[in-house]
């Protein structure tokens, strides 16, 4: 059996702004692990220094006791069942909260860009132009596709569902809209609550 919790360490206070969810085993359900990692993937596609930024945010938010280095971050994110090297370890609620706090912190910093890209998408649709008519949007989509393909296991049915550029673009645009909701006054609480939708008894 795996040990579900690391030896007792002080839990960062900031985690208390998010409630513990009443889930079985006290760990993040599958959909939560998937969604949190995808949200972070979208952030990395928006921001060239995304993965550095994630570690920096962990430090800024004083979450280093949970995410102390790159390897730990990779382990947590690899609890996403779509990953090539999906980890057979649980994602604890504290770890899930830490990733959500980081994602929303970064999303907030990218608010202007996120809004610009969503409006650009809107305008392209109105003019019936393809997505590559907007340089910055096309760049985001291309990077998202590259990140997704290089990290997700193509043998999984869930991943196979995104086997074309069009489908991956749709996913990237959906995540962009979701990221916008992460930037709001209660964005962190909203994202945290949403990953447990349909999972609590």
């Amino acid at each position: 059996m795996q040990v579900h919790h690391p030896p007792a360490k002080p839990v960062p206070m900031i985690l208390d702004i998010l409630p513990d969810m009443p889930v079985a085993d006290g760990v993040c359900p599958r959909r939560a692990r998937l969604q949190i990692d995808l949200i972070l993937l979208a952030i990395e596609a928006l921001d060239l220094s995304g993965s550095e930024a994630i570690l920096k945010a962990a430090k800024d938010l004083e979450l280093q006791s949970i995410i102390k280095n790159r390897v730990m971050l990779w382990r947590l994110r690899s609890t996403n069942p779509f990953r090539r090297n999906s980890q057979r370890r649980p994602l604890t609620l504290a770890e899930g909260k830490a990733l959500v706090l980081i994602a929303c912190n970064l999303a907030r910093r990218l608010t202007v860009l996120i809004r610009q890209l969503l409006l650009a998408h809107q305008q392209l649709q109105e003019k019936q132009l393809s997505l590559d008519h907007h340089f910055r949007l096309a760049e985001y989509l291309e990077r998202f596709r590259a990140h997704f393909r290089s990290r997700m296991n193509p043998k999984r049915a869930g991943v196979m569902a995104y086997d074309t550029d069009e489908k991956l673009n749709e996913l990237a645009l959906l995540l962009l809209g979701q990221l916008l909701f992460c930037t709001g006054t209660s964005g962190t609480q909203r994202l945290w609550s949403s990953v447990f939708d349909g999972e609590v008894a």
């Binding site: 979701q178 949403s194 349909g198």
Partner: peptide, 10 residues
Amino acid sequence: AQQFLSGVPY
């Protein structure tokens, strides 16, 4: 907004 974030229809 929650439904949009989670995709889980309420």
